[in-house]
């Protein structure tokens, strides 16, 4: 058989052998893929993944928990949903027996079990006396708007336990911590998912904890009631892109841990940024034409992204996202 005869045979063989056979299997795979995507989206799995350097990612209900370990202790970014803190602390203990020294919140939406995670550690301040004398947990770091909103909860909503409130806040720019031989930067992202968002950059490990400005399970949650805005989300995504340096052919290098969903690198952030920007542009165009919210929703500006990122049920639906984008852009 010569090479020139192969293409014709190839087509025939492919059609006969594979096209007839795998269709049901492929459909099953597609169904399985959707199930897996939904399971991942709900954050049902608890598992730990070493990212690189000193940084680990714990996948937990309520979102990803980021852990940095070293000789000086443990630094944690974000806390899981109620009921999952014991399991997350157990995962942290598999990584290090050192005390948890810092807990950083990327936004108010990742503070559900601050008290439990903080209490599993102790602050550096006061040394071996401080923890005993003051019975304090790990230092909780967040933008001051997180503290402000946790301290002024709207009537009817659950008031956070005092132990869960941030103990060290910052206003503008970034909070810098040098821990475990590594600069750790909590970088404020104004008016993004909320008005208190930070991304956390582990500069030596080359890992970014993005919080909810980047969610691999859904469209970004733009919480207008808490000061969020779609423009701020896009700015934050572009800042993450600026911080990322791929290792080779747009792959690896800086890793980015989203608020929810799988581990990513710059290319994943890039595709997400493209999507959010395109949807923003479409809604902006319709707002500019004076269209109502109902008209904008009817135009389906998220259409081709819905199968991967959209939802008709749950706490953050596609409709809610479109409405948030519309109102972010001045739609009435």
């Amino acid at each position: 058989m010569t090479a020139k005869t192969i293409p014709a045979l190839t087509l025939a063989a492919a059609a006969a052998f594979f096209a007839l056979g795998p269709a049901p299997q492929a459909r099953a795979q597609q169904a399985k893929g959707k199930q897996q995507a939904k399971a991942a989206a709900k954050g049902q799995e608890i598992g730990t993944l070493k990212v690189q350097g000193n940084v680990y990612m714990i996948v937990a209900p309520g979102g990803n928990v980021v852990v940095q370990t070293g000789d000086w202790g443990v630094l944690v970014v974000d806390t899981p949903a109620e009921g999952a803190s014991d399991a997350v602390i157990a995962e942290i203990r598999k990584l290090s027996s050192k005390p948890i020294r810092y807990l950083i919140n990327t936004s108010m939406d990742h503070t559900a079990t601050n008290a439990a995670i903080s209490r599993a550690g102790a602050p550096i301040t006061g040394g071996n006396l401080g923890a005993v004398a003051f019975d304090n947990g790990a230092t909780i770091v967040a933008h001051e708007n997180v503290l402000g909103r946790m301290s002024n909860v709207p009537e009817g909503q659950k008031v956070p336990n005092a132990d869960s409130l941030p103990t060290t806040t910052f206003n503008e720019g970034q909070k810098e911590i040098f821990f475990n031989d590594e600069p750790v930067l909590a970088m404020f992202q104004p008016k993004a998912h909320t008005d208190g968002d930070s991304i956390v950059f582990f500069r030596r490990s080359d890992v970014i904890a993005a919080g909810d400005v980047f969610d691999m399970t859904s469209f970004p949650k733009v919480d207008l009631a808490k000061g969020g805005n779609i423009e701020g989300v896009i700015k934050a995504l572009n800042i993450i892109l600026d911080l990322c340096v791929p290792r080779h052919e747009q792959e690896g290098g800086t890793y980015v841990i989203p608020g929810r969903g799988r581990l990513t690198d710059e290319h994943d952030v890039l595709e997400y940024r493209d999507m959010v920007t395109i949807i923003r542009d479409r809604v902006k165009n319709l707002v500019g034409k004076g269209q109502t919210l109902a008209q904008v929703k009817a135009a389906k500006p998220t259409y081709e992204y819905d199968a991967r990122w959209g939802s008709t049920t749950g706490p953050w639906t596609t409709d809610m996202f479109v409405e948030a984008v519309y109102k972010s852009l001045g739609g009435k």
Binding site: M1, A3, P7, T10, A14, F18, A26
Partner: peptide, 24 residues
């Protein structure tokens, strides 16, 4: 001295049926 490569791709997001391709 030839290889036929056949790929079957399923995509639950963007394909209605498997995409089958071949190269030599």
């Amino acid at each position: 001295d030839a290889i036929t490569h056949i790929s079957v791709v399923t995509d639950p997001v963007y394909l209605s049926e498997p995409l089958i391709k071949s190269e030599d």
